[in-house]
């Protein structure tokens, strides 16, 4: 069984059927690009994978664990959803950095909040063991502090990876779009997701800034990261992907190696799509 298995994902918005039975499997360490014309359901699929939308029908298995099932989805509480979401990271087209925090805090905020939640649980546990109040307090404090240190250290390593160490104290409004998107990538990585998803990470960027973001994503591939990338950059999809998925009107019309899809498209839809985006292919 593959690392990620999506089976028969269906999603409607009102009467509009946006996903009509998506089957997709992804191996560990694989980079999958999703291409397709506007409105074909790419973003919706990513949002369903990330539990921002709930599919009406379907099943998802990650690493052998049944993560989503339409039979259970009504019973998913906020807390359950939160834990499920943590399996994935999502990088948005519009970055969505937190404007009031500097770069480093953007990376450390979520992991720190998770630690605080864990600390609360730990406290209950220690209380259950009948430990003294002061002892518990000391132990919790030590735990939180050492975790904080770890989180910050890891964040700094990530910033180095995306080449933004010297910007760690800057605020998002002081950064270029490309830099903001690289921070967003580092922020998603800080939670160590099993799969990192990108929704057109360079669409909001000036052409001269896309290269630096694409370079960072490519460098992640070398780190053996499992990634799903929705993109309009055909050249990039061709060079970075192990597998390309072409979506058309809510279904996966074609999938396979980049070579197979780009040089030998089978469906009319893909042929048309490639012909229309052909002018971009050169770069």
């Amino acid at each position: 069984m593959a690392f990620l298995e999506i089976k028969n994902y269906n999603k409607k918005f009102g009467e509009l059927k946006v996903l009509k039975g998506i089957d997709l499997s992804i191996e560990k360490g694989e980079v999958v690009s999703i291409i397709g014309s506007s409105g074909s359901g790419k973003t919706t699929l990513l949002r369903c994978i990330n539990f921002l939308e709930t599919p009406d029908v379907g099943e998802m298995i990650l690493d052998g664990e049944l993560l989503f099932s339409d039979l259970e989805s009504k019973k998913y509480t906020e807390k359950i959803l939160r834990n499920k979401r943590l399996n994935f990271g999502l990088v948005f087209q519009s970055f969505n950095l937190f404007p009031q925090y500097n770069v480093l805090k953007n990376l450390t905020l979520a992991p720190t909040l998770l630690i605080k939640t864990k600390a609360k649980k730990l406290k209950e546990q220690l209380k259950g063991q009948g430990k003294k109040f002061l002892e518990i307090k000391k132990e919790i404090k030590e735990y939180v502090n050492s975790e904080r240190e770890r989180i910050e250290k890891e964040a700094l390593i990530l910033l180095e990876k995306v080449d933004l160490t010297e910007k760690k104290n800057s605020y998002p409004c002081e950064l270029s779009g490309g830099q903001q998107q690289r921070v967003a990538i580092a922020r998603a990585l800080a939670l160590k997701p099993k799969i990192l998803c990108f929704d057109e990470p360079t669409s909001a960027l000036d052409p001269e800034l896309t290269a630096e973001v694409l370079r960072v994503i490519k460098s992640l591939k070398e780190g053996d990261r499992t990634m799903i990338i929705v993109t309009h950059e055909m050249g990039f999809a061709k060079s970075v992907s192990d597998k390309v998925v072409f979506m058309s009107e809510g279904i996966i019309a074609e999938q396979g190696s980049p070579k197979k899809l780009f040089t030998n498209p089978k469906t009319e839809a893909l042929k048309n799509f490639l012909a229309n985006t052909g002018d971009k292919e050169g770069n």
Partner: peptide, 11 residues
């Protein structure tokens, strides 16, 4: 902004 928080596992 809300969704960025959601995908980062915030309550």
């Amino acid at each position: 902004q809300t969704e960025a928080g959601q995908v980062l596992g915030m309550t």
